[in-house]
Every structure is written in C-alpha cells, then in structure tokens.
C-alpha cells in the first residue's frame, strides 16, 4: 500500500487515495483529502455538515448512510452535493470522511 501525507499525518492509502486506517482520521486529514476531492478550500460549512454526518454514521454503523438519507438528513440536494464533491457522495464525500471505498452495484 502506498503512503501519503494528509493534514500532517502519514496515512496508508489505496489506489484511489482512500485511507486505509479509518481510526487515524482527523479534521486535518479530511482537509488534506478534500484538496483532491472537494471543489472549495478550505471546506465550506455545508461540506463539513455532509462529511460530519457521514463520519458519525460510520462510527455508529460501520457503513456509509444511504444516499437518500444523507440528502434528507443534511437537507442538501444531490446535485449540490455533486457540485461540492464532483465524484459524488460515495467516491467523493465518503472518501473525505475517511470511509473505505463502497463496492457492489453502486
């Protein structure tokens, strides 16, 4: 596995830059990841709202929330999420939140 400096911490990443040690995630790591994945730096309040919701959900359930749940609970439209994170809620926002890459029919 490759290593990369993110927000001052050296992190293991996969081929697409998803971090491999979710426990080492911090806000600074998120900003580091967001440099690639988020359109605006530093991240806006809405981007943080999204990332924090995903992060908390992951802590509670060890998985990403359903996309519809994410939009409704954060009160953000899906196309706006794509504006902030061009690779979308899964490959973009979940990556910044330190989650593993989702796989399957998604």
């Amino acid at each position: 596995m490759a290593k990369k400096m993110l927000g001052g911490t050296e992190m293991e990443i996969d081929e697409d830059g998803f971090i491999q040690e979710p426990d080492k995630w911090t806000n600074a790591v998120a900003e580091g990841l967001a440099e690639e994945e988020c359109e605006i730096h530093p991240m806006t309040e809405d981007a943080w709202k999204l990332v924090n919701f995903i992060r908390q959900y992951y802590i509670d359930y060890e998985t990403a929330p359903a996309i519809r749940m994410l939009c409704k609970k954060c009160d953000l439209k899906l196309n706006y999420i794509y504006e902030m994170f061009p690779k979308g809620p899964a490959a973009g926002a979940c990556k910044v939140a330190g989650l593993p890459k989702p796989t399957g029919c998604v």
């Binding site: 359930y61 060890e62 998985t63 749940m69 399957g104």
Partner: peptide, 13 residues
C-alpha cells in the same frame, strides 16, 4: 450483503 451493511444499519435504513 455486497455493500457491507450490517443488520443494525439495515434496520436503520
């Protein structure tokens, strides 16, 4: 399931 969703997350969803 393929997505790795555990039973408590399934129920929540």
């Amino acid at each position: 399931n393929h997505l790795g969703i555990q039973p408590h997350a399934f129920a929540d969803t």
